[in-house]
């Protein structure tokens, strides 16, 4: 089992779109795939039209394995399952503090899913909290979408700094550029500077209004518009990532 987190301190950089599309691609190449929506806003759950059961909550999530397993839902796509987020996830951080080893919690909670899913994706909320630390420990790869702006790069630097200070494995971190617009000089300049660097994937996701329409389609872009420029880019990104993981 490989676990991949879509993570960024900053919001609105394309975490959910990336998680949904990459998980969909993974379900085609290495079925079945699970996507865990960890964001109380529940955007990826929304994309798949899935609402958590009324009885499901952050408390059940923290109980782990069996409780998690029973709440996994099949999406409308073969071999792609989702663990929906619940609004109570906003309390996850507080609740994690009461646990004995909060950083290791997520890792042990999903252990039993090991045999069933070759790939698990985490769609993370945008902040740097105890939950994020738990995600860092549970993930084999931490994918960080970045809009080619100075502000995005700054948060990427902050993340690396945090890893170093806490003696975490920075080798897990991979940045990649999203919402790239060729007509913008700064985008071009940043991509050129960081494109081939260590800890960066070379594939870039272009700005594509089709990505925003995912909220209307309520399905992965790669499933409904596989030839859209962004969909093609996600496909290349997934291949690059698979190559690196394998």
């Amino acid at each position: 089992m490989k676990t991949i987190a879509l993570y960024s301190i900053k919001g609105g950089v394309g975490k959910t779109a990336s998680a949904v599309n990459l998980a969909y691609l993974s379900s085609l190449t290495a079925p079945p795939t699970l996507i865990c929506d960890l964001d109380p806003q529940g955007a990826s759950s929304f994309y798949f039209r899935i609402v958590a059961d009324k009885k499901y909550s952050s408390k059940k999530f923290l109980k782990g394995n069996k409780k998690i397993y029973n709440n996994i839902k099949g999406t409308d796509f073969d071999n792609l399952d989702l663990l929906p987020a619940d609004f109570s996830y906003r309390n996850l951080d507080l609740e994690l503090q009461e646990e004995k080893k909060p950083q290791k919690k997520l890792k042990s909670n999903i252990q039993e899913l090991n045999t069933e899913y070759p790939y698990i994706f985490f769609d993370c909320p945008p902040n740097l909290t105890l939950l994020s630390e738990s995600v860092f420990a549970a993930s084999d790869v931490i994918l960080v979408p970045l809009i080619p702006t100075t502000l995005s790069l700054r948060t990427f630097g902050q993340l690396l700094e945090f890893f170093k200070e806490n003696k975490l494995d920075t080798g897990k971190i991979r940045g990649f550029f999203t919402m790239f617009e060729r007509r913008k000089a700064m985008h071009r300049q940043i991509v050129e500077e960081y494109g081939g660097k260590k800890r960066f994937l070379s594939q870039i996701i272009p700005y594509n209004s089709e990505v925003e329409k995912m909220g209307i389609y309520r399905a992965p872009l790669n499933a409904v518009r596989p030839h859209a420029p962004a969909a093609l880019a996600y496909k290349m990104l997934w291949e690059e990532l698979m190559h690196e993981i394998a």
């Binding site: 899935i50 709440n71 996994i72 839902k73 099949g74 409308d76 399952d81």
Partner: peptide, 10 residues
């Protein structure tokens, strides 16, 4: 014949 196939979690 009718086949009713479930979806996981429902």
């Amino acid at each position: 014949f009718i086949t009713l196939t479930p979806v996981k979690g429902f």
